[in-house]
Design a protein around this nucleic acid. Structure first.
Lengths: 335, 335
DNA sequence: CTGAAAGCGCTAACAG
DNA sequence: CTGTTAGCGCTTTCAG
């Protein structure tokens, strides 16, 4: 069995209180005792029991992160940022894959409560009343990552989706494209679906290009398969498109594949711009021009916010992260 | 604050022992008290404190998983399998990104010990004496995932790398290729580096094709960038190759990109086979033929093993998982 | 500067 | 069937 603080105390001939003080760098002991204790610790290979500490401190130094079954590349960029900061600031992270069904999300929320995590990062999924209620009950800091809620006062970190989509489409227009299609994600998704369509629409309108609903096709998700399925559909219902804006990189790469099958050359015959800037954007053939979300930084920022709330007890401000265009080779300038 | 078992006991007019029994489904109470207690629990919204439980039971229902900074796609497939089984069997998972430096691995190991996790899954990285010693000290089950150790008696789950590489190259030969190159990962990697080269060599020799070291080029890692850099080098030092075996899908996709830049058509001018069967293999243009490792199943299997050890206290047997060839479109049969 | 003792929330004998 | 009690390993008053 692991040695306990008691063993250390006995070995060093002091009380456990003294050992505890030394462990926690509190004042109240002579240099000599400190040395003796430190030596006992080393000799025994003593490691404090975080469980016992958690019980009394009411802090577990652990946070929970909920991921829906979104593209794993998307999630893992976020996770990396989260884990880096959490570790740096002395916290562990418990990952929870909630998949689609809310049931599992509820189970996880309950679990995280039982484990007494210090805070929760809720990613990508929409916040529901049910979730919010239990979160409120738990009475711990929560931050929304790559999602947000109008209804509930939870701090978030995300990109401005509408604005980002606007930028992507504006970029296309600047490059001389006028006949631009869009492959959207789920239109019922108030967070990543609709706003991007609105950004697309707005960009068009602002340049005096009429919006034509035939030019946007909506899929159920944001996956590769959606891109594969939707590009042909889009091309059929909207003629002579010179460019398409895909609502995610996975969709864009799917579109790239579909185009390849159709014998349509990208970017010679058709320009494509994606959204996210995942690793696959870089790896695509040809490399995908895309609207970049700083996923890794978002993960870091969200975690910073969470831990700040934890430490200060204060609310923090939401952060809208900057997006940018990463120019690669799927958009051809039109003369 | 969260209500405690005491509150429940008071409200239901019973002792905390009775509540505890009911919570743990142990015998020893009437139906009536049970109902009363259950109602009190519901009314208070009581949730047992897993930290307190962990302290007394010496079980935290939590496992730790260590990932080096391997391709995130690779890790996240594993993680998904791990998390699914862990959750199904009532455990949470703490993720630890160890990056490259062993220092961080040691810190994590120590952390996981302090948190008193019930078991550890150690992925991809080579087991060192230093790690093994602390792991042994911790005295909890450990399983190696996508790695193995000759020196230390730790159960593992992985694919037979040499055999898998042998299969991949044999496949190429069956398709009529004789002049086959290889882009290897780090040759100093005893687990994923060398064995795959040996499999390549063996497959050649078994068909009477002489091995020529000019035909294999080794990179430092298994990343996309390595593929990009190494293909041109390989093509320069080995003429008239008709096919290449890449030691990972990322390398293969990098090779695909490099070929595209060079104006080499795949598979018309050059066939390529990858290794892993990540999602990107499917998404590549053209879709990548590859040697599939069942990553998700491996994650599941490893976790099953770990939890079995935990529950039974018995050692478990290592598992060599089946590999297979996923035929897509980067290998052209030679007449 | 140091120790004794209470108690975090829970489980597990041991009594009754 | 039910309650009392002693800890699990630690932090933290409160005395000295």
């Amino acid at each position: 069995m692991n040695p306990t603080i008691k063993d250390v105390a006995k070995k060093a001939n002091v009380s456990i209180a003294t050992v505890s003080r030394i462990l926690n760098k509190q004042p109240g002991y002579s240099v000599k005792t400190k040395e003796r204790v430190l030596e006992a610790i080393k000799e025994l290979g003593y490691q404090p029991n975080a469980v016992a500490r958690g019980l009394i401190n009411k802090r577990t130094q652990t946070i929970g992160v909920l991921f829906p079954d979104v593209s794993s590349m998307f999630s893992s960029d976020l996770l990396k940022g989260i884990e880096d900061i959490a570790h740096e600031r002395g916290h562990s992270v418990i990952v929870c894959h909630t998949t689609l069904s809310g049931q599992r999300t509820m189970k996880y929320l309950q679990l995280l409560n039982e484990k007494r995590v210090d805070g929760i990062i809720f990613t990508s999924e929409a916040m529901t009343e049910e979730y919010y209620n239990v979160l409120k009950e738990m009475n711990i800091p929560v931050v929304l990552l790559a999602t947000q809620s109008y209804r509930y006062p939870l701090p978030y970190v995300k990109v401005d989706d509408k604005h980002a989509a606007y930028s992507a489409v504006s970029y296309l227009i600047q490059k001389g494209h006028h006949n631009i299609g869009m492959i959207s994600g789920d239109i019922n998704d108030q967070l990543a679906g609709l706003p991007r369509i609105e950004g697309y629409k707005q960009a068009l309108l602002d340049r005096g290009i009429p919006f034509d609903e035939k030019k946007v096709v909506v899929s159920r998700g944001f996956r590769y398969e959606d891109g594969i399925a939707q590009l042909p559909k889009l091309l059929k219902q909207a003629k002579d498109l010179t460019a398409v804006f895909a609502a995610s990189d996975e969709i864009a790469v799917g579109a790239l594949s579909a185009a390849y099958e159709l014998g349509i050359r990208v970017p010679e015959d058709l320009s494509i711009i994606g959204y996210d800037n995942l690793k696959i954007a870089e790896m695509a053939i040809p490399p995908l021009t895309t609207l970049a979300q700083p996923l890794y930084e978002m993960g870091k920022a969200g975690t910073e916010m969470l831990l700040d709330m934890l430490e200060t007890g204060q609310a923090v401000e939401s952060r809208v992260m900057p997006h940018s265009i990463v120019e690669r080779r799927t958009v051809k300038p039109l003369s």
